[in-house]
Amino acid sequence: MKKHYLELVWIIAKTDFKLRYNNSVLGYFWSLLKPLLLFAVLWLVFSVFMDLGVPNYQLYLLWGIILWNFFAEGTMSGVHALSSKANIIKKIYFPRILVVIASTLTAFLSLFVSTLVFYIFMLFSGVPLTYHAFTFIPVVMLMYGLILGFSMFLSALHIKFRDIDQIWEVLIQAGFWLSPIIYPLSRVPENWQNYLLLNPITGIIQYSRRAIIEHDFPAIKGTIYILMCTIAILIIGFFVFNKLSPKAAEEL
């Protein structure tokens, strides 16, 4: 039975992907161009027009955009996990969490492809690629924990409140500017830095950039905070999801 559930997740994710990009590789690469284009514009503005003076800024910026994009893409499709699968949910029982996992999976694909682009970029930038690059793995795990937690929470609420997705889109926009993606955290006034660090994604982006680009391992305290946040969000998400999702078939 367990194995069958894995296959169900896989086929739902695969089908979603196929339908979204209409089965064409080109269609998919278009969607990859979005973060890269954003990167190009922001790089032009903040490195040429008004120089922020950050060494290896292009890597800084790109890695920040990639991680944020992973979060944004994952949660944005996660919000619709239950509502977009109404036709299946109304007719058949399976653990509802499977559709949440399935709909967040597609975000991994763009993450892997764009990470590859990033590492290639890094080779050309003359920054040595060290074993620190492996911090990529725990970073992605933490990010996925956050995505899953938020997606459970949001998709369950989306059944009742159909405008949650629009609200979330605005919050994602705000989050993009309030996380140190374009600017380094050090440029933020010191009394504000601690507020920004309350957001676990700020920490994840900050630490992983420092590890990969500056070869410096993150502070234990900060890492523990991020881990706790992720676990808390997962638990809250799971709790809300378990409470609301059994009603999904009736509400949808």
């Binding site: 069958h4 296959e7 086929i11 739902i12 089908t15 209409n22 036709n87 007719k91 058949i92």
Partner: peptide, 30 residues
Amino acid sequence: PFLELGVGFNEELTARENIYMNGTILGLTS
């Protein structure tokens, strides 16, 4: 659990793809 036929059928997919989709939903492994 097939309350209705063709759960998960999608117009944009081929018959082959729909068989796999529907079959998996009905509890079959690939």
